[in-house]
Amino acid sequence: MPVSEERSVSSPLLELPGAIANPDDSPDHGVAWHFGDPFGEQRTAARSAAVLDRSHRGVVAVTGDDRCSWLNLLTSQLLTELPEGSGTEALVLDSHGRVEHHAVLAHLNRTVYLDNEPGRAEPLREYLESMKFWSAVETSIAELGVLTLLGPEVGGLVDFELPDEPYAVRELPGGQGLVRAMPGSYDLLVPRAELADWWRRITEAGVRPTGTWTYEALRVEALRPRLGVDTDERTIPHEARWVPSAVHLNKGCYRGQETVSKVQNVGQPPRRLMLLHLDGSPEVLPQTGDPVLSGTKTVGRVGTVITHHELGPIALALLKRSAPVDGELIAGAEDRAIQAAVDPDSVPAEHVAPGKAAAAALRGK
């Protein structure tokens, strides 16, 4: 698959009939927001089959004999045993255990592909390059774009085979690209020059075009965080529910591991990612980064804010452990401040730190 430098351009699929672009200030600027019926598109994605353009994401390619063992040293995930035809998620942490990068991986044809948030592929590649030393690896920006398939009926419509298990990876017909199963969806990584051809092939099979509004609404409902939107510069993996999906708790040393181990074994995360239901009567909604208040006290931070086809206006929020989860909250700043309530099903189970449990057992003897 050819590679080139990362580019920041609008997707050619924005020229399709009915495509409505994301606002300029959106993290998804450059791809379609919706195709004229966002709630109908969400219902189709939840019940039938839909496709959306996520080609604004960047893809880093890592080749060379040491690719897996080298990436294993630099990330939170166990990658020495990542076989061909499989994928996973991984984080790059700083020395304090705070999340710097989140990537979704696919290993195929002796190459590990790491796709990540818009604008973050080149910074990730630069970091990886700085850590090469004597390892037999090469890094580049892959000229691949991401298309995502959603819905329970999508496998019966497309004319190529989809992987059966989450994070399994298959080569696409013709050997130019791959498809990776994700929890609740499928990602296609295809040559950017062929984005329109693949879109046409999929939609002509009966899969409905949709945009990022649909993807974001279903992602928020599923409590899946997004780096830089649902996280801030202080976020550690446990706070954002990236344990265990992107963090292996029984692997060798990597930068930031001490924080992960300490929280897992003897502590609790200071914040927790939860779903907020927002008051839909005002015409305004809070924005990403706005505070969440209990009375006059700031107890959290608003992440993704979206209107869901069934749940109405909802948001992800990082809330302090001390934040009340059964009382009224206020989300937003200034004239955007509205009533909010924590979805009780989104409150995570209390983490049992094995180190504390062992110490308590010893004290009880």
Rank of each mutant, 00 (worst) to 15 (best):
S8P: 00
N22S: 15
F35E: 03
F35L: 04
G36W: 04
P38G: 05
G40C: 09
R43Y: 11
T44G: 03
A46W: 08
R47F: 10
S48P: 01
V51Y: 10
V59F: 07
D65G: 11
D66R: 07
S69Y: 03
W70G: 00
G85Y: 12
E89Q: 15
R98G: 05
V104M: 12
R110F: 11
N116W: 00
E129C: 10
A136Q: 15
E143I: 01
L150T: 04
P152M: 05
V154F: 06
G156H: 09
G156Y: 09
P166A: 06
A168W: 04
E171A: 04
E171R: 02
G175R: 07
G184M: 12
L189D: 00
L195E: 08
W199S: 02
P209V: 03
T210N: 05
T210Y: 04
G211I: 01
T214S: 10
P225A: 11
G228F: 01
D230E: 13
D232G: 11
P237M: 08
V243S: 08
A246G: 10
L249D: 04
R255N: 07
Q257L: 09
N265L: 05
N265I: 00
V266G: 01
V266Y: 14
V266R: 15
L273C: 13
V305A: 00
V305W: 00
E310A: 14
I314C: 08
A323H: 02
P324Q: 04
V342L: 06
H351V: 05
A359V: 13
A359I: 10
